[in-house]
């Protein structure tokens, strides 16, 4: 009962949403398409073709454009966030994980296959600086003042802090094997260790490891609930989504979610939608009962978007 009570705030946090979402957009990385799902009926309405291998999405700071990164096509596909009509294409090398800085002035792209983190001017998408980082820059996050970007280096078991004012590397620090999800959190940096069973806690200023949060095998991605009270950690090997108190990191509950949960999105009814990479489905997890409903989508679904879900964690944080 206590666990249920801790999760109830999730239901209240969507008051900011003007209306119930109409559709959910899923990025099918393995078949170059987007699936549009009816939020109410859970039926797949249509598929939108992409060019090669889209993975993640990001909303522009003004909320007018939804951007999908197609890594193998080396392009950003700019969509209308309501109708999903394609507005234009922008050439950007290997746009894997991508985020706008919190102040909305810069657009930062981690190129997983290209060993680089590119910093662009938001709006014009003019390249300001390229950080060459070995290897496999994977996930990104920022300090709230937008001065520093953090990136996990999946291929070399490290994390890096990048000064976005001077365009220099602040520090590169060791982590556990195959670091993936990364999140700035109250002066600390949380790094999901995919090659092990925990989340590293680093001092965001120095990169020094100051603690570990136990997780299940293959800890992959980190999300914060819309009310910022609950930390979500999903795991690749054990196929779980685990919840923790975001302040104390005390475990709350672990949900078994077969099929490789990856990106998550939080919906107004207090549920979590997750892309399930291995089974070509999206899962809808009821956090109170643990029940899981699934919807077939495309091959290797990765990113998932619901309008109004900005600032709700994950790669859309």
């Amino acid at each position: 009962m206590r666990r249920v009570m801790m999760l109830l705030p999730l239901l209240w946090s969507f008051a900011a949403l003007a209306e119930t979402p109409k559709t959910v957009l899923v990025v099918n990385s393995g078949e170059a398409s987007l699936s549009v799902i009816d939020y109410a009926t859970h039926s797949v309405l249509r598929k939108i073709p992409m060019l090669r291998e889209p993975h993640h999405w990001v909303m522009t700071p003004d909320g007018r454009d939804l951007i999908i990164g197609d890594t193998v096509a080396n392009e950003l596909v700019v969509l209308d966030p309501d109708t999903y009509d394609i507005r234009r294409h922008i050439t950007v090398p290997d746009p894997y994980q991508m985020l706008f800085t919190p102040d909305g002035t810069k657009f930062v792209v981690a190129g997983l296959a290209r060993k680089q983190v590119d910093v662009y001017e938001a709006g014009t998408y003019k390249l300001l600086h390229r950080f060459h980082l070995v290897s496999m820059p994977s996930h990104l996050d920022f300090t709230p003042d937008s001065s520093t970007a953090f990136v996990s280096l999946q291929g070399t078991n490290k994390a890096a802090a990048l000064d976005l004012r001077t365009m220099t590397v602040k520090w590169i620090a060791p982590t556990g094997p195959a670091p993936a999800g990364i999140m700035y959190h109250n002066g600390h940096l949380l790094v999901a260790i995919m090659g092990s069973d925990h989340v590293d806690v680093l001092d965001a200023k120095t990169g020094e490891t100051v603690g570990h949060i136990p997780a299940t095998n293959g800890a992959h991605q980190l999300f914060i609930s819309p009310d910022h009270k609950t930390l979500f950690v999903n795991s690749r090997i054990d196929s779980t989504i685990s919840t923790y108190d975001a302040n104390t990191f005390k475990p709350i509950r672990t949900y078994r979610v077969p099929g490789g949960p990856d990106d998550l999105i939080f919906t107004p009814d207090g549920k979590v939608w997750a892309t399930l990479r291995f089974v070509q489905k999206v899962g809808i997890l009821d956090l109170q009962t643990g029940a899981l409903e699934t919807i077939p989508v495309g091959r290797s679904p990765h990113g998932i978007y619901i309008k109004g879900a900005v600032n709700m964690g994950g790669d859309n944080k």
């Binding site: 195959a178 995919m194 090659g195 293959g218 291995f278 089974v279």
Partner: peptide
């Protein structure tokens, strides 16, 4: 997907090659 989840990834995890997941 089944092969990836139940054979390839556990092998990558065991041998320390999860960066290729």
């Amino acid at each position: 997907g089944w092969l990836q989840e139940h054979a390839v990834l556990p092998l990558l995890y065991y041998f320390g090659f999860m960066q290729w997941e």
